[in-house]
């Protein structure tokens, strides 16, 4: 029984009121109720219906008191923490559309050099069409972020947005605003899967301290992980080797990388120097984000006291009805 109660999450809000249950014995035991004196009840017939009415009267009184006591103790059921496993991830793709994305990769060994944008687009398209259970959204940014597709199951919109990037990039790299916009789309949604921000960018940008704090706070609130696919340009710096102290400012990518590392959220960087590297990076990412996410959801408990109040009300109504049928005067009317 108790296991059953445990599993259904039944419980009492304030069990102290249950002491009033003792009072439920009173109607069963009381003998001092008003009655007409009669010289000899043995002369009267024992009537089945009357006996049952007497029993009904006693039990209705008892039940009314008992249910009131239970109702006052506030029974509920259904409070349980549901363990849910989220399979699909929520991925916001943050795609850099700055002018530098039109350049080719750092690895110039290949003659048919594909532009970084084209490579990213191709790989992202296959990524989008492969991800079955995910919710996807996309934000592109150059000088300012543009919402392309809000977080949702609509892959066609994302694919269309990716195709639209064929128009070529322009402007600067406003990473912070793009990330901020992407993170905004997680706001107020249930965490039913891993949240990931997939930043595809070929360069860094300098973030001031205020923006850094704001972004950090947003990352923490949304609990999103960050994957940065760094498409290294031909003249771009690698993130692997730290630059000299005096020319740190010349490498905003490395500063961004350091900042991301200091975020305190799940952060991975993939430095891609060729289209193949981008594919590998995305394959890696899709594997990572597909790890099932366990999360607990508290199901709202249901207050059951109204049931007991209802029973008590019915019992009281029965008592009142019996009271109305009671003979007030021992006389033929």
């Amino acid at each position: 029984m108790s296991e059953f109660l445990q599993s259904t999450g039944a419980g009492l809000h304030s069990p102290a009121w249950l002491f009033l249950l003792v009072l439920a014995l009173v109607p069963l035991m009381v003998r001092g109720h008003a009655a007409f004196p009669y010289p000899s009840v043995s002369r009267l017939p024992e009537d089945e219906l009357s006996v049952w009415i007497e029993r009904l009267w006693r039990w209705a009184g008892s039940l009314a008191i008992a249910t009131l006591a239970i109702a006052m103790s506030g029974p509920y059921w259904g409070e349980q923490r549901l363990e849910k496993v989220g399979r699909g991830a929520h991925v916001m793709i943050v795609l850099d559309r700055s002018a530098s994305m039109n350049d080719s990769f750092a690895d110039t060994a290949k003659s048919d050099s594909e532009s970084k944008m084209a490579a990213a687009r191709r790989v992202l398209q296959s990524f989008v069409s492969q991800s079955r259970e995910d919710l996807l959204g996309m934000v592109t940014f150059s000088t300012s972020p543009i919402l392309v597709a809000p977080l949702g199951g609509d892959r066609e919109a994302v694919l269309a947005a990716l195709r639209a990037t064929e128009a070529g990039g322009m402007g600067f790299t406003a990473v912070a605003r793009g990330l901020g916009m992407a993170l905004d789309y997680f706001e107020g949604r249930p965490v039913t899967g891993a949240r990931a921000i997939l930043l595809v960018s070929d360069g860094g940008a300098h973030l001031d301290v205020k923006t850094q704090d704001l972004l950090r706070e947003m990352f923490h609130r949304q609990g999103a992980s960050l994957y940065w696919v760094y498409l290294r340009s031909a003249n771009g710096a690698s993130l692997k080797d730290a630059p000299e102290d005096e020319n740190r400012d010349a490498f905003p990518e490395y500063q961004l990388h350091e900042y991301f590392q200091s975020l305190g959220v799940n952060y991975h960087v993939y430095e891609a120097e060729s289209p193949q590297a981008v594919e590998e990076a995305l394959a890696d990412i899709s594997r990572l984000k597909n790890q099932p996410v366990k999360y607990y959801e508290a199901a709202a408990r249901q207050d059951l006291s109204w049931v007991f109040y209802l029973i008590a009300l019915l019992c009281a109504a029965t008592l009142f009805a019996l009271h109305l049928t009671e003979v007030k005067k021992w006389r033929a009317v």
């Binding site: 109720h33 009655a35 007409f36 000899s40 009840v41 043995s42 007497e54 003979v327 033929a332």
Partner: peptide, 27 residues
């Protein structure tokens, strides 16, 4: 009033005057 002049209808409880217990009567 013991047997003839009874209430026509209603629930009455009577108590024996010599401690013979109660009796419920739905008249």
């Amino acid at each position: 009033s013991e047997y003839k002049d009874l209430p026509n209808w209603g629930w009455a409880r009577v108590r024996d005057m010599e401690g013979g217990g109660d009796r419920s009567l739905f008249l």
